[in-house]
């Protein structure tokens, strides 16, 4: 009866709604997906046929995953994310990427790196391009080196070789991974919003 759960169309539809509502609280998002799944089940059960074409029609009436996701985000009081200029995004993400080489400058390095990171965090929060949840995650990842770098250094200093320059460099590189992940996620999300904006204006 419920063999349409294997339907690639239904699966892809729900997966896209899920992906585009990742900013919603988990319970709200689960409820939305459950409602959509139930709707598809019931609509199929009430239809005379259960072929691919019927499934397509049901999904068509539900509307584009983007429209459903936007409606869900709007209900939660989230303003629709608005793309900022690509240049502004590039500067923000550039500051994040720059903080590693900056950190390696003797003496003033860590201070410069911290300044670049804090500036990037402020720019992320000022932008309407990312939702709150994305901003929170990015902030944690971006500021993590402040804790992670000394932690790795302490671990290294407890090992036989002590804190060598190579070990310190390795610590910096490892600690720098979370900010890179943050930059990549912010970039992907920004690119997606620009694409949606371009489609809406077309």
């Amino acid at each position: 009866m419920n063999d349409h759960h294997d339907q690639p169309l239904v699966h892809a539809y729900l997966a896209e709604v899920a992906q585009r509502t990742s900013a919603l609280p988990d319970a709200t998002r689960r409820e939305l997906l459950a409602n959509l799944r139930e709707h598809i089940d019931v609509a199929l059960a009430e239809s005379d046929r259960a072929d691919q074409e019927t499934v397509r029609q049901i999904l068509d009436r539900l509307g584009r995953p983007q429209a459903v996701a936007d409606a869900a985000l709007a209900e939660e009081g989230w303003p629709r994310a608005e793309a900022e200029s690509p240049g502004r995004t590039t500067v923000t993400l550039g500051l994040i990427v720059l903080s590693l080489p900056l950190a390696l400058i003797p003496a003033v390095g860590p201070v410069l790196a911290l300044a670049a990171t804090v500036t990037a965090v402020v720019r992320v929060w000022k932008s309407a391009q990312w939702v709150r949840k994305e901003k929170m995650q990015a902030t944690l990842l971006l500021l993590s080196p402040v804790v992670v770098t000394p932690a790795i250094a302490v671990v290294l200093s407890l090992t036989a070789s002590g804190v060598t320059p190579v070990a310190l460099l390795a610590a910096c590189a490892a600690a720098f991974c979370p900010p890179l992940v943050a930059a990549a996620r912010l970039w992907r999300s920004a690119a997606r919003i620009r694409t949606i904006g371009a489609i809406a204006e077309a």
């Binding site: 409602n35 709707h39 509307g63 429209a67 459903v68």
Partner: peptide, 13 residues
């Protein structure tokens, strides 16, 4: 008439 799926968030609210 609107995309049916957009009503479910409203119903949840």
């Amino acid at each position: 008439a609107t995309s049916q799926g957009t009503i479910y968030p409203l119903l949840s609210r």
